[in-house]
Design a protein around this nucleic acid. Structure first.
Lengths: 200, 200
DNA sequence: ACCTGAACACCGTTCAAGT
DNA sequence: ACCTGAACACCGTTCAAGT
């Protein structure tokens, strides 16, 4: 058992977030529990509640880390491209890659509902916004939007769409009749949407 | 307490499915448990396990009922339209309406992961397919697809997209910076996708 | 001051025992 | 034959008690 003062509050926090992410990656969302996280970092479950208000708050921080990692991946992908259309298609593929490889962590971003009253903190919304900024950049280059409202509309519609194709693919809801590979679906969605946008 | 032979196996099944759907509609997914369902139908929790293999199987049937209801709503909407493009836009709006009004039941369709090995039964995949058939019909009318593969591709890309916009909107992930109403997002997605498809 | 460990009110699931 | 109710192995969360 870890003795007192072995770790600072912030160290315990970071250890717990890392342990939770590892559980999600290795054993899935079903295996994530406060007791298991506590065990993995060598403290009792009570200690977790000295450092986090509750399990929801721990998950919020896990999700924040996931958003950061995902934004980093998309940023790297974005910098590999000059032309906006190939960039957007590649970002969609990268998003799918992450969703597939980190299924549990990715889906927890969207399935984790905070308590009915609670709104996510501002710093969390900022991280979400930073993710969308990766998509906004090539969209701006296309010069297809006039107003700021139109830009807000287009980035949300396109990325909402990409997200949905990935979500349905991972939930196995697209596997009936003819099989279609997800990368091809994403390419169809992005390409057709952008064509429509540029010609409308 | 209900006495033996008060209800047949099938009656108990139907009561349990209805009770579970009611819990989801009134109190959300957090409130759904085998014990609560049993209480609501006047049996003990043990009886539930005589009739369902486990809670996952009960949820599978709840989801089947949700798919039927949703397909019925979309079918009614579809029959109100003659022109394919307005029909597809209206179907997207109807999907959003249902997702919003029946948040817990709708999201359970996608968040409920069966055990790692288990594939959903064929009758469940059939219900999913019937849902997509509502979208396939107006898409066929557009005569924009050549092969059956292309039709399979387009229906999945478009409806995956619509699904994703609804999913992100309900998970509050689109609420930063400028506010954009979801119906407007869906219209942008469907309209641009179809324009791109018809002109590509 | 920091952490434990037991307690409380819940879970899903099983199954001997009752009617 | 049908159903119960207690048991088991888990949960999240709290908090008096220990060092």
């Amino acid at each position: 058992m870890a003795r007192r003062s072995d770790h600072s509050r912030d160290e315990i926090k970071a250890m717990a977030i890392a342990a939770a992410a590892a559980i999600l990656a290795r054993r899935g969302v079903q295996a994530l529990s406060a007791r298991q996280v506590a065990k993995d970092i060598g403290y009792t479950v009570g200690t977790l509640y000295l450092v986090f208000k509750n399990l929801d708050e721990l998950i919020l921080h896990v999700n924040a880390a996931t958003l950061d990692e995902l934004a980093q991946l998309l940023r790297e992908e974005l910098h590999r491209h000059v032309e906006p259309q190939p960039a957007l298609r590649a970002l969609a593929q990268r998003y799918w890659e992450f969703a597939q490889q980190q299924h549990a962590r990715w889906s927890l971003l969207f399935t984790h509902q905070l308590a009915v009253n609670a709104k996510p903190p501002a710093w969390f919304a900022t991280k979400v916004r930073q993710l969308f900024a990766m998509v906004e950049e090539p969209l701006q280059q296309l010069h297809a939007t006039q107003s700021s409202h139109e830009r807000a509309l287009v980035v949300r519609a396109l990325w909402g769409g990409v997200h949905g194709v990935c979500a349905l693919a991972l939930s196995d809801k697209l596997r009936w009749g003819e099989e279609v590979a997800t990368p091809e679906l994403l390419d169809s969605l992005v390409t057709n949407f952008l064509h429509g946008l540029l010609q409308g």
